[in-house]
Simulated assay, not measured.
Amino acid sequence: MSTADYRVEAVDYAAAQDDLRRVREAVFVEEQGVPRDLERDALDPLCHHVIARNAEGLPIGTARLTPDHRIGRMAVLSAWRGRGVGEALLLALLAEARHRQWPAVSLHAQVGAEGFYARQGFLPEGERFFEAGIEHHGMRRVLGATATIAHRAEAVAITTAIIVQARRALAIYSRTLDPGLWDAPPVMEALRRFATHRTGVQVQILLQDAAAPQHALAPLIGLAQRLPSVFGFREVQDPVDLPYAAAFVANDDHGYYYRPLGHRFDGEAGLEHAGRARQLREEFTQMWERARPVSEYRALGL
């Protein structure tokens, strides 16, 4: 992968170890205080390494894929953060893992970077822990197969990833805008960025009970008030739709999260399942056409 500013490429460890270490030591040892003997390990020669270089060919970022299906040593020089380098490195490693037909990859995310990995479809696992004196959280990304969602933290992570992956459209079916999910800060921020950083986007939200989130002052309603051309709300009213117990979100790419019982977080999700996402959007469209516009939201400025 390359841009006008940098390129990402796979490298042989023996040939590129000086460049790899230059970046890693600048980030981990000098910036974060990780002991040098902990930063280096015996796995390095066995790993698949990628490196990001600027237009002059100087190293600005690194990452590796270990034989035990783990992503690690993700490091980007401070001057290059926020410019997509980390995402490009991560996508290169995910592409290599798919090429090897691995079912999943995992990593130890520094707590401050959890949001970055969640936006790429990684789900949190287990409890937080300390590694090299820095708090981490285990995370895992399923490749190809569907992921099982059981807890709120997983629900927030996968919903965020589905929003980030969307191109132009999101379809959301919810009972009452699910407190704990559709008001979670990472989800709200992803929706805000989706609605304000792209043109021609649309978020359709179909509710079973429109009054409940209004009475609860759901923050998503406030966001929609500021962006009425993007967000649309309807409420189911047809007898054929009223017994529908599930909830879901589906984008116009390959992502979906389906909960058989809409009042729970338990469900299944995927970011590489265009067929299932399309099926849910088609089901959503049928219910949307039978539903009533939420005029009481429009009275508030929508």
Rank of each mutant, 00 (worst) to 15 (best):
V105T: 05
D266A: 14
G301S: 10
Y297G: 01
A15L: 10
F129M: 09
S2G: 06
E154K: 03
R64M: 11
P103N: 09
S229L: 12
R40K: 13
A210D: 09
A88M: 04
A212L: 09
Q286W: 05
A247Q: 02
V294T: 07
L223H: 06
A212N: 01
A291E: 03
R281I: 06
T159D: 06
A169V: 12
T285A: 14
E30D: 12
M188G: 13
Q208C: 05
A161V: 07
A210S: 13
Y6R: 05
I163Y: 02
P228Y: 09
P35C: 07
D241P: 07
P103H: 10
T176F: 02
W80V: 04
P179V: 04
G72N: 05
L207W: 02
L107F: 00
G222P: 04
A246E: 12
E25F: 11
R83W: 06
D18E: 13
R64D: 06
R141Q: 11
V240A: 15
P124T: 07
R64Q: 07
E31S: 09
L65N: 07
Q214K: 07
A14T: 15
Y6H: 06
L93H: 05
F248W: 11
I158K: 04
H197N: 15
Y6F: 15
G86S: 05
E235Y: 02
D252T: 09
R298L: 15
A26S: 08
E25C: 08
L300R: 15
C47D: 07
R175V: 14
E30G: 00
S106E: 14
H69L: 12
R192N: 15
E235F: 01
P293K: 08
L217R: 12
R234K: 10
L43G: 05
H136I: 08
